[in-house]
Amino acid sequence: MSQQKEPLFQAETSRHDKKRPLVKNCIKAFVVGGIICTIGQLVTVLLIIYFPFTEQTAGNPTVSIMVFLSMLLTGFGLYNKLGQFAGAGSAVPVTGFGNAVVSAAIEHRSEGLVLGVGGNIFKLAGSVIVYGVVSAFFLALIKTLLIQWGVL
């Protein structure tokens, strides 16, 4: 039996490979991400002016509202189009998290509420939660130790 993997054709594959347009994608991500954050800031300001939230406490409800908006957009089938255009611009803000959760939930609705939606809703967002909690734990540990030793 001969070696089935042929290591050649590097030149052919790379010659025709299409790279992601990095600069263009960065600009798009910057603009769209900026717009999403501006909307978020608008929500914060509205919450501060019309509801009893301070700059400190307005953060959490703002996040909820932004996630809710992205859930609506996902449900209407618009967020994936935005995602294709904006890339990281729509994935990095918290709206991307909402989209990851809801898209998985919609996708697996056909397998039922328990095993389908329940089991798969964090298919994509689960790793964000896991590594978010893990890194938060270690950061808190480091901070506690530094305070204990009097560095901070």
Binding site: I35, T38, I39, Q41, L42, V45, L46, I49
Partner: peptide, 16 residues
């Protein structure tokens, strides 16, 4: 819609 959202968010900055 996008223009309306943008303008209103920029104007909301003025209040601040």
């Amino acid at each position: 819609l996008i223009v309306v959202i943008l303008i209103s968010s920029i104007l909301s900055g003025c209040v601040l």
